[in-house]
Structures are given as C-alpha cells and as structure tokens.
Design a protein around this nucleic acid. Structure first.
Length: 642
RNA sequence: GCUGGCGUAGCUCAGUAGGUAGAGCAGCUGAUUUGUAAUCAGCCGGUCGGGGGUUCGAUUCCUCUCGCCAGCUCCA
C-alpha cells in the first residue's frame, strides 16, 4: 500500500505498486501528458518507474530545469540513433549534457561535416515525429556486455567493464535502437521538439590525447521552440561582444600572420593597457611591493637550473647566437626573480619581500589553442614573487586574495569563481609540507569566508595553486589571477636568508602570484564584459570636443586642452563635418563623453555635453564638466560607489 | 598538435558550371560651414592567403603550406 507524498504535502494512497505516470494521471490528464520524469525520494527516475513503498514524489515537466537536462540527454540519444541509422558501422561512446545542450562522441570511419549535420538533424526530427516509446531495461552485467559486444559497440563494453560491480546496468531502447545509459529519459521521442545541431569537433576518448580521436557532435536542446529561439538570439547577441571584433572596430589592436598569437597594440588599445599598468603599479605599491625588471633572454643553463629546459622546453622559444650559446626567451618570470633574490645576502628583516615585475613572457602555445587576446604566445604578466617565512605564509596568502578581490571589484567583477588545485600524484616534497602549503591556501580562504571549488590533483608538481576565474561573453572560463606556492625553485636555486640567530641557511617560502594574470587576457575579458563601452577611467578616449563650425575651433581646442591638463584623455574633432555625423561616429566608437561647442557655448563660456548612449547632460560650465568627469573616473568600474 | 570549417579591396560581404572580379562603408580630392546617430559629387583601391600541379587558360579543380574560426588536449 504505497503512500506517495507530493511536493504540496498532500498524500495519496494506492492499493498496489504504481508508476510515476499513474500518479500523474491520477492528479490530472494534463499533468500526465506533460510529465517527463519524476523525482522519487530525491532521485530522478523515468515516468515508467514503479513505486512500491512509501515515498515522496514530484513530477517533472518541461517547466523544471531538471527536466530540461533530461530533454538534452534524451536528445543526445536521438542524435546517436540518427547517426547510426545514417552511418552504419559508427560506434557510440558517451553523450552527456553540457550547458545549454549536449554532445555525443562517435567512433566512425566517416568524417562528419556540417553538411552531414543538416541530414542528421532532419533524421532526428523524423524519429521524434515517430514518437517512439523509450523503454528502460535492466540487465545483468554479463548479459549487457554480451549484448553490446554483439552489436560491435566496443566502447560501451569498456564502459560497462569499468562500472563499479554493484552498479545497476540499464539499457534504453527506442524503436530498434538501444544504448547503455543510466537515465532517466523522456517517455517518448515525441517529447523532443526543440533542438539544433551546432558544431562538429574532434575529441579524445576519455579526454586523453594518447587515445583514439573520436568525433564529437554538439547540439542544443530546449523545452520548446521559443526557448530554442531565445537561446540562438542570446548567442548572436554574445557574438557582438567578441573582443576580437570589437578590437578591430574600436581600433585597439590587431593580429598578423607574421606573428601568430602576438598582439599589435594600437594607440587606443595601448592607452587602455597603460591605464591598467599604472593602476596596478599604484595598487601594488600601496600593498608593499617593490617592482623590478629581469632579462627577457637568458642562457640555457638558467633554464636547466629552474627545470624549465627539462619540463617546459617544447613551449619555449629559444635562439642560438654567433658564439653558439643557446638562449631562451622567458616563458615565466620566476627564474629571473629567484636569481634576483639570490643576488646578495638576505636577512629575515627583508621578509616578506614582495617583488613585482611586469614581465613579458613568450610561450610557444599549440596553434589550435590560440584565441584572440585570451590565449596568445606573447603576453605581459602582472607577476610578483613573495619570499617569506613559514609563519608569514598564510597571512601573505590572505593579503594576496584580498588584493585580487578588491581589484576585481574596481572592474565590476563581484562574483569570482575560485578554484583550488591540490597535490598531484607526481609531486615533490613530503606530505607534511603539502599539508602545510594547502593549509595555507585553504586557511586563507576559510579566514575570509570564501567559497571555492577544489580540483584534486590539479596542482603543479611543486605546489598547490589558487585560480581566479572570469568568463567571456559566451560563457567560456578563463583563468586570470593566480596564487601558487612554490617549493621547487627555492630548492633548485638554493636560496636562503639569515635568521635572527645568524643561521645563514634558512630556506624562504616562495609565493607566486599574478592578479590580472595576463594583461592581454584581462583586457580581452574587459572588452567583452563592457561590450567595448569602457567605464570612463579606462576609456581610451574619455572625451572628444567637437565644434559646430570652423568659428568654434579655437574654443574647442581650448576646452580640450583644459581637459587634458586635468589628466583626461581628451581630443578634438574639428573636421568639416556636420555635428550629427561626428556624433554618430563617436557614439559608434563608444566614446563616453562628447563635448559640443558652438555659438551659444562660446558666448557663455560653457560646454554642451552628450554622454554615451544619447544621454543629453545639457549645458555645463567647464568646471562642472571637470568635476563630473573626475568623480566618475574615481569611481572606476565599481558596481556601487564606495 | 588533433577534427571540422573558413581565407575575395582597410572593414563587411557578393561573384565566377575554369575565360585574370563587384557593392556598401572607409580613404583621397573638391564643393558645402553645418546644433546632437550618416551633406553631395568625383577618384583611388584587389598578383581572390602563399607554393606547386592539371589546363590553351586557375580566384574557381587537385595538392602542399600558412593563417583564422569552433571544439578537443594544454594553459595566464
């Protein structure tokens, strides 16, 4: 006599075991039709699931986010079915959901093209129209293996073999087609109405480059066509924020085939770059850092000492000179920094020593990894290395994390994802030391009450790290700030300080941190974040003074010079064009303020101000304008003014 | 690096079933002296990413290569 408790607290009693569908039908015919899955005692199940005892139950319809996940998963099956019908001999592997959609990886003799996707999508629509019942079959392990082996689905066999022994093996069947899957799934293929295949790509079996490369087909799926359309619109909108496109439009930078992965910064982009540098200098100085500079090209022997020649050489640019010495362009600043520390005697009184460097590093990144400003071969880090004692380490970590988060707030980044990567299998140093290093990081985060995601085993071989992750316009994650604890280099370079007892062999702890991470990447993120409409303090051109006719040119120049004298990036636009034309251009260039001067203004000694997006501020005195701009610059990009 | 796609004027894009290319914007010149998102006219502009091949002839077909885009792997 199962008693089923529904989300509203009401209870229904049944004479005999019932399915989720039966319960839904008992509530109403509409719900029965809309039911896609159920949640029984917190576990998602098919609507064919039989309830035998007392349970709680909620019915999932396409209004539930969880049900949309199920729709996506079922659409992945629909894809696989269509592909196997159209391309016999293709093996299926895995087909999970991802954000906004799903993918399925196939092993096939056929290489899928975009043209194929259209045909596959067509077949998927046909199978959906057939409204095939989706059936769940539980199978003993051996039998399941036999079934898939007979089908020639060797990847599936491998998946089953790797499942834990006590795991229930379920097979889903729709029409003649079946697939190994944990489920749950929608009750029939007719429930899948809003999907689109989006791209095809290579992917490695189990994510390992050494394994066979599979072909991955991506798609998006939604509860209804309206949602699908909204999603496609959203993607199109996001593409307008693409920093590569905006970089061209706003004349910030360009790339050339002559230097793949390297940025040519134009005056306006460089103005932004310089603004960030200057800002960071100020912040670091206030936080007790000193700034240094180390060579870009250093002898091979240094890289041998640091271990880069062994571990990182395929990513390094190197060069041989006439005297046959081999040099490498630095891919990281740390070896230079350690050499700097090693130069001369250091006392415990010097610690913590916070040594910053805006180092331009070169890394030979795989060609396929390059991506606008986000992933380049040539970038500037706002790097620093902090040398301190064991006792100082945790507080230094706290200081760094506080500094990063406060700096990000100046750019309007309030919710930053923090990742903690812990000890990898291959590592140096004892467990006790790792406990201490990881403890310093978790301790700092704990003290500050910050949430973070742990990535076990993802740390560097020499120490754990924190990553501060920001996202681009279409939701891709990019690591920006980072804080790492390094046990490798102090050891390799045998650096030491003199402690209070005169002991000259005390090994300092070395923290490695970058706040923006890469200036290039950070600017890429900023462009997308602001859609090119930078807050005043960052805008390459903060104000442009435009004249109505030639008569007003001298006055316009005078106003612009006053703005420049106040430290603003101001220009004039004295071209013989109509005011509407100039305004249009400056609006498209996303200039924050257009200052218009004509007869009226010249007579009154005032200016007429138009803010970005057509906002008319009317006539202001020059002093009032300067004051407005100064306070806006001071506010930076904070969501709320301090 | 791997898989798929793309590469035509500074930019956005059209085009040629193989007969050496076109538009808009930008640029230049001239006229116009203009009040908050485009004044008008004229002109200039491309070895159709690069090499090789097939062909009487290649931007178009084949092939290699470089670059870019999406994803995978890897990373700031």
């Amino acid at each position: 006599m199962p008693v089923v408790t529904l989300p509203d607290g009401s209870q229904r009693t049944f004479e005999a075991p019932v399915t989720v569908f039966d319960v839904a039908a008992g509530i109403g015919a509409g719900l029965a039709k809309a039911a896609l899955a159920g949640v029984v005692d917190g576990r998602e199940v098919d609507i064919s699931h039989v309830i035998e005892g007392d349970t709680t139950l909620s019915i999932l319809t396409d209004r539930d986010e969880a049900a949309i996940e199920i729709i996506r998963h079922s659409t992945a099956h629909l894809l696989a079915q269509a592909v196997q019908q159209l391309f016999p001999g293709t093996q299926v592997t895995i087909g999970p959901t991802v954000e906004d959609g799903f993918y399925y990886d196939f092993a096939s003799g056929h290489n899928f093209t975009l043209k194929d996707l259209e045909n596959i999508e067509q077949r998927m629509a046909e199978i959906a129209a057939d409204d095939l019942t989706v059936e769940r079959i539980v199978s003993p392990r051996d039998k399941a293996i036999e079934i898939f082996r007979n089908m020639g689905e060797h990847y599936k066999v491998q998946i089953i073999e790797d499942l834990p022994g006590d795991e229930e093996i379920s097979i889903y069947k729709q029409g003649e087609w079946m697939d190994l899957c944990r489920g749950p799934h929608v009750p029939s293929t007719g429930k899948l109405q809003a999907f689109k295949l989006t791209k095809v790509a290579g992917a490695y079996w189990r994510g390992d480059v050494n394994n066979q490369q599979l072909q991955r087909i991506y798609g998006t799926a939604w509860a209804n066509k309206k949602q699908l359309k909204a999603y496609l619109n959203r993607i199109a909108e996001a593409e307008k924020r693409d920093h590569r496109k905006l970089g061209r439009q706003l004349e910030l930078f360009h790339f050339s085939e002559d230097a793949p992965g390297s940025v040519f910064w134009h005056p306006r982009g460089w103005a932004l770059f310089r603004q960030l540098l200057e800002y960071m200098r100020g912040r670091q100085e206030a936080a007790g850092y000193v700034e240094v500079n180390t060579p870009d090209v250093m002898d091979r022997s240094l890289w041998e000492t640091s271990g880069h020649w062994m571990n990182y050489r395929e990513n390094m640019f190197s060069t041989q000179t006439e005297d046959e010495r081999v040099y490498a362009l630095k891919p990281m600043n740390c070896p230079g920094s350690v050499s700097m520390f090693a130069h001369g005697l250091k006392s415990y009184r010097d610690l913590p020593l916070r040594m910053a460097e805006f180092g331009k590093v070169h890394r030979y990144e795989p060609s396929g990894a390059l991506h606008g400003l986000m992933r380049v071969r040539h970038f500037t880090q706002d790097d620093a290395h902090i040398y301190c004692t064991d006792e100082q380490m945790e507080q230094e970590c706290i200081n760094v994390v506080e500094l990063i988060l406060d700096i990000y707030r100046d750019f309007g980044f309030e919710d930053v994802v923090i990742k903690l990567s812990t000890r990898p299998e291959k590592r140096i140093g004892s467990d006790e030391i790792w406990d201490k290093l990881e403890g310093a990081l978790t301790g700092a985060l704990g003290t500050m009450g910050l949430d973070y995601v742990v990535y076990p085993g993802e740390g560097a071989f020499y120490g754990p790290k924190l990553e501060f992750v920001l996202t681009d316009a279409i939701g891709r994650d990019w690591q920006c700030g980072t804080l790492q604890v390094d046990m490798n280099l102090p050891e390799r370079f045998d650096i030491a300080y003199v402690d209070e007892n005169g002991n000259r062999n005390r090994r300092p702890v070395m923290l490695h941190r970058a706040l923006f991470g890469s200036l290039e990447r950070f600017i890429g993120i900023l462009i997308e974040q602001y859609e090119g409409a930078f807050p005043l303090w960052l805008a390459p051109r903060q104000a442009v003074v435009v004249n109505i006719t030639d008569k007003h040119a001298a006055y316009a120049t005078e106003v612009a010079e006053r703005l420049q004298a106040a430290g603003l990036r101001a220009e004039t636009d004295l071209r013989n064009e109509k005011i509407g034309f100039k305004i249009r251009e400056l609006e498209l260039a996303k200039v924050p303020y257009v200052v218009v001067v004509g007869d009226k203004e010249m007579t009154s000694g005032e200016v007429s101000v138009r803010a970005r997006h057509g906002q008319d501020l009317g006539s202001l005195t020059q002093d009032a304008l300067l004051e407005t701009l100064a306070s806006e610059v001071a506010r930076k990009g904070r969501v709320e003014a301090d």
